[in-house]
Write a protein that binds this DNA or RNA. Structure first.
Lengths: 329, 329
DNA sequence: TTGAAAGCGCTAACAG
DNA sequence: CTGTTAGCGCTTTCAA
């Protein structure tokens, strides 16, 4: 591997000049530039980022924290982040925390040790205290889940409203027994979506039935099945179910089918996220579309701005209720 | 941010000694070590990887090339890679090529510029020629899709046999009209799986019907739907379909349902990969299980060995036919 | 327009 | 057991 010295020698110039050519500075004469380019070509030279990064005291890496890589919601957001990162000459360090604090801490070290220039945290289970401390010295953005009044900039949607609209949709279809499958309310989004649910129930003069409120530890398919099983075992079972993730909804769908019931005729189901799979089920799933890709691009732009030392504002993106077969009674 | 100099000064030792403590060398007296640790603590010091990496001429990053991050097959493999990487003190640079050569080349630059120590390529559409050239100077492993006789080590499964077994399973259920939805045969795995299909057909004395062979450009849900639509429009439609990905199978399932037919009674369906979703469909999907996580761990181990300069052998892992509802007539 | 030289933060060879 | 020193490959000031 050639280095900048050898290029300089072959071109008969100083390393400074080679560096100038490398960085496209205009203060190099055409003749010199040509000589340098020739030398670069001949030696097959590629500048080492190791040297450049040390000198510039940056890594040009963005650390992305997600709880689980297999969750399609995150995949889509990451696509957006990647798009912006690449065009700004950054790369992505994708890290799966499994919502484990130890793992999380290993990854935080990446920014402490300068291996990453900033963090986009998408993990609802992130240790907020650590994050706040870290945010004092490093560029950090929260995406989707956030920490109010922490001073850490975030991009998200209006979860309360989204949830309200989904539940309202179910109620307007004539449903009076509407259940919710929510995740643990230690998460902000879960609390917000619960508020939306309750507001919709109240505003339409329905009764809040505690047995129609199920909490799950995770947002997966199995949890959806289990939760639905509980709901179906009730004396008076709900006629509609709103779940806070599509995976939960797909699990619920499956369980309803398994018990010989029909969606939406017996029970209507609405999910959240609009992951690709929500359109592959039978029936297709009514769901709240989050602008995942957009969310990713905005988060990346915010982070890069923050790294540059600019001030950034919180962003709340629009969502959209997508009505499909699972609620078309 | 404190650096090693400041720690040395505060501890009253040389930077060399601090470095020794940092790297856990035994040649430091307990007393000195203690002083250094105190200083590190007090200054809240974290060693910069930028300096270390330049000095060691390594980045401790592994570049993972995948065609699409949203494909659950890759997510699972990545989990395996990540597990090994983390325990060997490496990090993952996840790069989505979209099977685009330009994009791919940008990522190859990461290894050329020392931002990554090696590559695990999982992209079937990777430019083999470039990869071969790169492999002369850099550590490269292929995972799942590979290039025979290229000298690039790989980990994969026996695609021909897997395909053969799946099709044989369908035939043994009594099906005589078995179709295959395959991807473009410019890919090795597609050719191998086609061979397995043909062998199964031949060995059981069935006739090879060209109209039962469909090729798709991608492995997604929509392509599965479209392919199935073609098959269903045939005068004599197949009674069983084998697809080379679960997403294709799920698309096929959907299309069959849409046309008012029943799986498996009217048409049996078998997929490939055993992604999580293959168990969420209704009916659940018969599929060939690839050991995705295992494949990831092996690929990572191979790559790290290769980076260390060791010789590595190709690995062929076992697969397994998982029989579920979609073929239980 | 160009070059000399300092230095980013670290590790390791060598000397003591 | 510990310190001195060179140097990894680059960028950037300063001077010419």
């Amino acid at each position: 591997m050639a280095n900048i010295q050898q290029v300089a020698k072959l071109a008969g110039v100083s390393v400074a000049t080679v560096s100038r050519v490398l960085n496209g500075q205009r203060t190099v004469s055409a003749k010199t530039r040509f000589k340098v380019e020739q030398a670069i070509e001949k030696l097959n030279y590629e500048p080492s980022m190791l040297g450049r990064n040390l000198r510039n005291s940056e890594s040009r890496m963005l650390l992305i924290l997600i709880p689980a890589i297999t969750n399609p919601f995150y995949s889509e957001v990451i696509k957006g982040i990647e798009h912006i990162a690449i065009s700004s000459n950054y790369n992505i360090l994708l890290c799966e925390t499994d919502s484990s604090p130890e793992r999380e801490n290993i990854y935080f070290d990446l920014v402490r040790t300068k291996m990453a220039d900033g963090i986009i945290s998408m993990d609802p289970a992130v240790n907020t205290e650590t994050l706040k401390v870290l945010a004092k010295k490093h560029a950090i953005i929260q995406c989707s889940e956030y920490t109010p009044d922490s001073g850490i900039p975030y991009v998200t949607i209006d979860n309360e409203k989204a949830s309200y609209q989904a539940v309202k949709h179910l109620i307007q279809l004539g449903h009076k027994a509407v259940a919710i499958i929510n995740s643990d309310e230690k998460y902000l989004y879960a609390r917000q979506r619960m508020m939306g649910y309750k507001r919709a129930i109240m505003e339409h003069g329905l009764e809040l039935n505690e047995s129609y409120i199920i909490h799950t530890q995770q947002l997966g398919f199995e949890q959806g099945q289990q939760a639905m099983r509980k709901l179906l075992s009730l004396g008076e079972r709900p006629t509609a179910v709103f779940t806070v993730s599509d995976l939960l909804a797909i699990g619920a769908l499956k369980e309803i089918n398994n018990q010989g019931l029909h969606v939406p005729n017996d029970i209507a189901v609405a999910g959240f996220d609009k992951i690709d799979f929500s359109n592959m089920t039978n029936p297709t799933l009514t769901t709240v579309a989050q602008p995942m890709y957009k969310m990713g691009t905005i988060a990346a732009e915010m982070l890069i701005a923050k790294i540059k030392g600019q001030e950034v504002e919180d962003v709340i993106l629009d969502h959209e209720l997508v009505i499909r077969q699972s609620t078309l009674g």
